[in-house]
Lab assay of single mutants.
Amino acid sequence: MQIFVKTLTGKTITLEVEPSDTIENVKAKIQDKEGIPPDQQRLIFNGKQLEDGRTLSDYNIQKDSTLHLVLR
């Protein structure tokens, strides 16, 4: 499925993911596309910070959902 990740600069990254993917996996995909190390990434969905060990389906993230990427 496709999800979107919006950065603070207003750029939107499109990712191909599975609901069973962990947040860690998603961060690795963002690193592949953008070169941002996962330990600098914080992903936010519906105002909640997403934890590495959880999956997209844990957070009820579905296709065409938009996550927000904050760098630390």
Score class of each variant (00 low, 15 high):
F45V: 12
E16S: 14
D39A: 13
I36V: 12
P19V: 11
L67Y: 01
S65L: 03
T14F: 14
V26N: 00
R54S: 08
Q41L: 14
L67F: 03
R42Y: 15
E18I: 12
K27R: 07
G10V: 07
T12K: 06
P19Y: 04
L15F: 12
Q2L: 11
T66I: 12
I3N: 00
L67D: 01
I23D: 01
T55H: 12
N60A: 06
D58G: 07
G47N: 08
N25H: 02
Q41G: 06
K27I: 02
I30Y: 10
K33S: 07
P19N: 13
M1Y: 03
L15N: 00
T12H: 06
K29S: 15
S65P: 01
L8P: 10
N25M: 07
G53N: 08
P37S: 14
K63S: 12
K48W: 13
E24W: 02
E51S: 05
G35S: 06
Q41A: 08
V70T: 05
S20A: 12
Q49S: 06
L67Q: 01
T22G: 12
D32P: 02
R42W: 15
P38F: 15
T9E: 10
S20F: 12
D52I: 06
T66V: 04
G35F: 09
V5N: 00
R42P: 01
T12S: 09
K63I: 07
Q62A: 04
L8R: 09
K33M: 11
A28Y: 08
L15Q: 01
G47D: 12
V26G: 00
G35Y: 03
E24Q: 08
I61T: 02
D58N: 06
F4E: 11
I3R: 00
S20Y: 06
F45A: 03
K29Q: 03
I13T: 15
G35E: 03
T12W: 10
K27V: 06
H68N: 05
T7K: 08
V17W: 02
N60I: 09
D21Y: 10
A28T: 12
V5D: 00
T12A: 12
K29V: 14
M1A: 11
P38A: 10
Y59I: 05
T14V: 13
Q49D: 08
L50W: 01
K33G: 08
P38Y: 14
N46K: 04
K29N: 08
K27M: 10
L15K: 00
D32S: 04
L43H: 01
R54L: 14
T22Y: 11
P19D: 06
L8K: 10
M1I: 07
D32H: 08
I61A: 02
R54M: 11
S20V: 15
Q41I: 07
Y59P: 00
D39N: 07
T9W: 02
I3T: 01
P38S: 14
T66E: 03
Q41N: 07
R72M: 14
I13R: 04
K33Q: 11
S65R: 02
P38Q: 10
L43F: 12
T9Y: 02
H68L: 02
H68S: 04
G47E: 05
V70D: 03
I3P: 00
L69S: 01
N46H: 15
R72E: 08
Q40L: 05
K27N: 02
T9F: 03
E16H: 15
I36R: 03
K6A: 08
T66Y: 05
L69P: 00
G35L: 06
D32M: 10
K27D: 00
S20W: 05
D39W: 03
D32I: 07
N60D: 14
L15P: 00
P37V: 14
T55G: 08
T12I: 10
G35K: 09
